[in-house]
Computed example of a mutant assay.
Amino acid sequence: MAESLAEEAGRITITTLLREGIKRLQAAGIESAGQEALWILEAVLERTHLQLRLDGERPVSPVQHQRAEDLLRRRAAREPLQYLLGSQEFCGRAFTVTPAVLIPRPETELLVEETARRLVTTPRPLIADVGTGSGCIAVSLALNLPQAEIYGIDCSRAALQVAHENLMRHGVADRVTLMKGDLLEPLETVSAQGRVTAILSNPPYIPEDELDRLQPEVGRFEPRLALAGGPDGLTIHRRLISGALRYLAHGGILAMEVGAGSAPACVDLVRAQGGYRTIRTIPDQQGIERIVWAERPA
């Protein structure tokens, strides 16, 4: 029986497997079923898109067939493709991701772009990435600001392990220090009071009553700790706004990502706190006010 199954699997061609994969993902409601099935086969067969097309009539091995079937089954169950393949692109670079970390989103690239633009002429800036997760923000800034010293902070040891892998992957482990702890507290251990050039964060910002309405890929598989932002989605933002002034240097920056529609309320919190100036919002490509930016007076 085992031999006959292996022989049967060996006769399945790349084209047939791709066609069956697309049908399975379409039946599961995956909008980009064709592209995702193609990405899965590229990973399993270690071939490019073009090679898959050119070698369409080539049979797949029983091991490859089983591996593809497993990934397609899991994707049909709405497990995020990024976790299945173990990678996600951010700022033009590939980052390792696991279920221990939030999957990087394009809108978060705004934090990197705006901070790099603002600090490009600043000598030896000190930057804290609070809630570093995969380390995508810290790594991207280290690569764009070679003179920067960066702290990547997270309360999850598993997330920090992923971040460390990404530091090594991109060759910046000598300039990014990972620290375990709650929000800004680890900065106390390095006497950072009044010395930090920029505090950046993509904190949890999903309101509690919206968590159960998230799409399955997010609500069922991404870490809840990185999603749940309290009753109004701004619980962590409040703590950052009140705590950052202790560590920011004069002229220092506090930049936080916020959920859709939350920017005005977050700006109000910053103004009510006092001690900040140049308070503004930065929209993403969809026109959503995505970043709240504030500075400590020089």
Rank of each mutant, 00 (worst) to 15 (best):
I103V: 15
I103R: 06
R105S: 05
T108M: 11
L110G: 07
L110I: 10
L111F: 10
L111T: 08
E113N: 04
E113M: 05
E114M: 05
T121V: 13
T122A: 08
T122I: 08
P123C: 02
P123S: 07
P125H: 09
L126Y: 00
I127V: 15
V130F: 00
G131A: 06
G133N: 10
G133R: 11
G133F: 01
G133L: 12
S134R: 08
S134H: 11
G135Y: 10
A138H: 04
L141I: 01
L141R: 02
L141T: 09
P146E: 06
Q147V: 04
E149Q: 14
I150T: 07
I150Q: 01
Y151M: 01
G152K: 05
G152D: 03
D154W: 03
D154V: 14
C155I: 15
A159R: 11
V162I: 01
A163W: 03
A163E: 07
N166G: 09
L167N: 08
R169Q: 04
G171I: 03
A173K: 13
D174T: 13
D174M: 01
R175I: 09
R175E: 08
V176Q: 11
V176G: 10
V176N: 13
V176A: 10
T177C: 11
T177I: 14
L178F: 14
M179D: 06
K180L: 14
D182H: 14
L184N: 13
L184F: 10
L187I: 13
E188S: 12
T189P: 02
T189G: 12
V190H: 10
A192E: 07
A192S: 14
Q193G: 07
G194W: 09
G194T: 09
V196R: 12
V196W: 02
I199R: 02
S201Q: 00
S201L: 00
P204Y: 06
P204H: 10
Y205A: 00
Y205V: 00
Y205P: 00
E210Q: 15
E210T: 00
E210R: 14
L211R: 02
L211P: 04
